[in-house]
Simulated scan of single mutants.
Amino acid sequence: MTGDPRIDREANELNKRYEEQIAMLIARCESYYEGNHFEAISAAAVLYTLLYDKGGSAKSLLGQLNLLDRHLFLDSRHPRHGLVLNTAKGAWPTTTWPEKAWREENLCPFDEWWGEQEFHVHFTDLIFTRRELIECSPSAPMAQIRG
């Protein structure tokens, strides 16, 4: 016998879930950039599923697929200031960075990308990592992140 067929089925199901989550994330982001800012909560929920390891038996989808440690992640913070989030009229932060973003020097391991890189919202005292942003409940005020 060559192996347990349940493992193949589980891997296929995980890959299908991964493809669905990525498609949902793309759709949420496109809708957000079209002006539907309510999509931010839905996008955060998808990112939570893809990235958040809660410890114990709960593991992120990318963790289950062993993709977190095998890939580098793009540091999208501003290369000079470390400040990425600008606000338009005091609302809806948007990431701003030119095409140079894809340079190899802007790639880093998941743990650094997820839990160590800080974002600062211009003209506010808000500071957070990607992990803190995703962990924050949609009903919790942003000031609970750090500020």
Rank of each mutant, 00 (worst) to 15 (best):
R70S: 15
K100G: 11
E13I: 00
D75V: 02
E132C: 01
P109R: 05
P93V: 07
K16R: 14
T49V: 13
T124I: 04
W114F: 15
W97H: 13
A40C: 03
P79H: 09
V121F: 03
S76P: 00
I22H: 09
F119L: 09
Y18G: 00
L67W: 05
Y18W: 13
A91L: 13
T94V: 13
D125P: 00
L85S: 06
H71G: 03
E19A: 15
P98S: 15
K54T: 05
H37E: 10
A11I: 09
G55E: 09
R28H: 15
N36K: 15
N66Q: 13
L50Q: 04
H78Y: 05
G63D: 02
T124G: 02
E118H: 08
P98M: 07
H78I: 01
I145V: 12
I145K: 10
N15Y: 01
G115I: 00
E30G: 05
A88Y: 11
L107Y: 12
W92L: 10
I134K: 04
P109V: 04
I145E: 05
L65K: 04
R146H: 12
R130N: 14
N15F: 02
N12M: 08
P141L: 07
L83R: 15
V121E: 11
I22A: 07
A11R: 10
R146K: 13
G3L: 07
K89Y: 09
A88F: 12
I127D: 06
R146D: 09
E34M: 11
D4M: 02
E116I: 01
W102Q: 11
L25I: 08
L126R: 09
L51G: 01
T129G: 03
M24T: 04
N36S: 12
M24A: 13
N106V: 02
L126P: 01
Q144M: 11
T87S: 15
P109E: 08
L126Q: 09
T2S: 11
S137Y: 04
A40H: 04
T87F: 10
N66F: 03
E99N: 09
F123T: 13
F119N: 11
L83H: 14
A40V: 09
P5Y: 02
R70N: 10
Q144W: 04
R9L: 04
E105N: 10
E20Y: 02
V121Y: 05
E118P: 00
G82A: 03
A88K: 12
E104R: 14
T49P: 01
L61G: 07
A44D: 05
D8F: 00
G63N: 10
P141S: 08
P79D: 07
P98W: 11
L67S: 06
P79K: 06
R130I: 11
M142P: 06
Y48E: 15
A58R: 11
R130P: 00
T124Q: 06
E135T: 00
M142A: 12
L65Q: 05
R146A: 08
E30S: 04
I127K: 15
L126F: 07
A91S: 08
E34Y: 07
E112C: 06
Y32N: 07
I127Y: 11
E112A: 05
M142Y: 02
L50P: 01
S31T: 04
Y33Q: 12
A11Y: 01
K54A: 14
T124K: 06
F73Y: 14
L107E: 09
S31D: 13
T95S: 15
L85Y: 10
R103S: 15
F128Q: 01
E116R: 13
P5S: 02
D53K: 03
E39R: 10
M1G: 06
A101N: 07
D4G: 02
A140I: 01
